[in-house]
Design a binder for these strands. Structure first.
Lengths: 122, 122
DNA sequence: TTGATATTTAACCATTGAGTTAAGTAATGG
DNA sequence: CCATTACTTAACTCAATGGTTAAATATCAA
């Protein structure tokens, strides 16, 4: 039984896994705007978008500044840093010329099954 | 109506949003291993882990090399590149000195609007 | 006050996701 | 052959997610 990692990471990745939400963030990257303007491009109801905004707000990717009846929304990328850091730890598995690990293993490793206690990758 | 972005991104982020799956990847980063060894640390049934592996395999983050009745699993980070690229586009929203937009607002604004919706604890 | 505008909340529904147990498949070895 | 080992598939439950419509809230503007 292993102790689980940060569950904010769960929520950040989960928030980013929805295309509508990513599109909203893309729009927000251009500058702050209102809920209805955010909703406009999508073929879905306003409440649906409202929920998406709530999710983004929940993980801190979106910040609201209410101005009368308008809700001005801005992006806050800070939570993405965590995600980026996590993914970054796996950079060596994709950022090199050895795209797939298979290549790497083929070259560096004759036959070390299982625990690579003498492992040199790092 | 806006055209959606890559739906592989959906699946990659979704795959990464599960802590069990991330833990599996972490283990895999240490070297290839079998299904049962991957399953061992978790307090869940083998079929449950099997499903997780299938998800990871589905997005290409895991590669199997069957060897008799053992399924040797390796990580393939390649799909993460896409996720990293996507997140990277938002780097300016977190990599700068203005860490969180909240700080910015706090300074430039009346600081009364901190927790607008307040719904859940988060 | 009345009505329109901006947005959320509530209640509901269908689909998906993560887990379960039980059964099935395939390779190994006495 | 038969049992064991390694793993998957099937069938099911339960909770969460993403959408809906209808109603509620709050602000602006006559």
């Amino acid at each position: 039984m292993v102790k689980y990692q940060s569950d904010t990471l769960d929520h950040i990745f989960s928030a980013l896994s929805d295309p509508t939400r990513r599109a909203i963030l893309a729009r927000l990257a251009l500058g702050e705007t209102t809920v209805s303007e955010l909703a406009e491009p999508f073929d879905m109801s306003l409440p649906a978008v409202s929920k998406h905004l709530k999710v983004l707000e929940g993980v801190g990717l979106l910040v609201r500044e209410r101005q009368g009846r308008l809700h001005l929304c801005q992006i806050d990328g800070a939570p993405m840093r965590e995600a980026a850091n996590w993914i970054g730890r796996y950079r060596r598995f994709w950022d090199t010329q050895l795209d797939s690990l298979a290549d790497y293993l083929e070259r560096s490793n004759t036959n070390n099954r299982k625990n690579p206690s003498g492992g040199k990758n790092g």
